[in-house]
Amino acid sequence: MTTMTQATAQAQPRPPKIPESVLVVIHTPALEVLLIERADRPGFWQSVTGSKDFLEEPPHETAAREVREETGILLGAPGVPVEALHDWDLRNVYEIYPVWRHRYAPGVTHNTEHVFGLTVPAGTPVQLAPREHLAHVWLPWREAADRCFSPSNAEAILQLPQRLGRMR
Rank of each mutant, 00 (worst) to 15 (best):
residue 1 M to F: 09
residue 1 M to R: 11
residue 2 T to A: 15
residue 3 T to L: 15
residue 5 T to D: 15
residue 5 T to K: 06
residue 7 A to S: 08
residue 7 A to T: 05
residue 8 T to C: 12
residue 8 T to M: 14
residue 9 A to H: 01
residue 9 A to S: 04
residue 9 A to T: 03
residue 13 P to K: 07
residue 13 P to M: 04
residue 17 K to L: 14
residue 19 P to D: 03
residue 20 E to H: 03
residue 20 E to N: 02
residue 23 L to C: 11
residue 24 V to L: 09
residue 26 I to G: 07
residue 26 I to T: 14
residue 26 I to C: 14
residue 26 I to W: 04
residue 28 T to A: 08
residue 29 P to E: 08
residue 29 P to L: 01
residue 29 P to I: 02
residue 35 L to N: 03
residue 35 L to M: 10
residue 36 I to V: 15
residue 37 E to T: 09
residue 38 R to D: 11
residue 39 A to L: 14
residue 39 A to W: 00
residue 41 R to C: 06
residue 41 R to M: 12
residue 41 R to Y: 01
residue 42 P to H: 12
residue 43 G to I: 14
residue 43 G to F: 03
residue 45 W to L: 00
residue 45 W to G: 00
residue 45 W to C: 02
residue 46 Q to P: 08
residue 46 Q to I: 08
residue 47 S to R: 01
residue 47 S to T: 15
residue 48 V to E: 03
residue 48 V to C: 12
residue 49 T to E: 11
residue 52 K to I: 00
residue 53 D to Q: 13
residue 53 D to T: 12
residue 54 F to Q: 05
residue 54 F to A: 13
residue 55 L to Q: 12
residue 55 L to D: 11
residue 56 E to D: 06
residue 56 E to F: 07
residue 57 E to W: 06
residue 60 H to N: 14
residue 60 H to C: 14
residue 62 T to G: 09
residue 62 T to A: 09
residue 62 T to R: 02
residue 63 A to Q: 00
residue 65 R to P: 02
residue 66 E to R: 14
residue 66 E to D: 01
residue 68 R to E: 10
residue 70 E to V: 09
residue 70 E to D: 11
residue 71 T to K: 00
residue 73 I to P: 00
residue 73 I to G: 01
residue 74 L to K: 12
residue 76 G to E: 14
residue 78 P to C: 13
residue 79 G to P: 00
residue 79 G to T: 01
residue 80 V to N: 02
residue 80 V to W: 00
residue 82 V to M: 13
residue 83 E to H: 11
residue 84 A to F: 06
residue 85 L to W: 00
residue 87 D to R: 00
residue 87 D to H: 05
residue 87 D to Y: 05
residue 88 W to R: 14
residue 90 L to A: 04
residue 90 L to Y: 11
residue 92 N to S: 12
residue 93 V to N: 04
residue 93 V to W: 03
residue 93 V to C: 03
residue 94 Y to E: 13
residue 95 E to C: 08
residue 95 E to H: 07
residue 97 Y to N: 12
residue 97 Y to I: 11
residue 100 W to A: 15
residue 102 H to Y: 04
residue 104 Y to R: 12
residue 105 A to Y: 07
residue 105 A to H: 01
residue 105 A to D: 02
residue 110 H to M: 08
residue 110 H to N: 04
residue 111 N to S: 11
residue 113 E to I: 08
residue 115 V to Q: 08
residue 117 G to N: 00
residue 121 P to V: 04
residue 121 P to D: 01
residue 122 A to G: 06
residue 124 T to V: 01
residue 124 T to C: 03
residue 125 P to A: 05
residue 126 V to M: 04
residue 126 V to C: 02
residue 129 A to E: 07
residue 129 A to L: 06
residue 131 R to F: 10
residue 132 E to D: 10
residue 132 E to W: 13
residue 134 L to M: 10
residue 134 L to H: 09
residue 137 V to E: 12
residue 137 V to H: 04
residue 138 W to F: 10
residue 141 W to Y: 15
residue 142 R to S: 10
residue 143 E to T: 07
residue 144 A to V: 09
residue 145 A to M: 11
residue 146 D to A: 04
residue 146 D to V: 04
residue 148 C to D: 07
residue 149 F to L: 09
residue 150 S to I: 00
residue 152 S to H: 15
residue 153 N to A: 13
residue 154 A to T: 12
residue 156 A to I: 00
residue 156 A to P: 05
residue 157 I to S: 08
residue 157 I to C: 04
residue 159 Q to K: 08
residue 160 L to S: 15
residue 164 L to Y: 13
residue 165 G to E: 02
residue 168 R to Q: 15
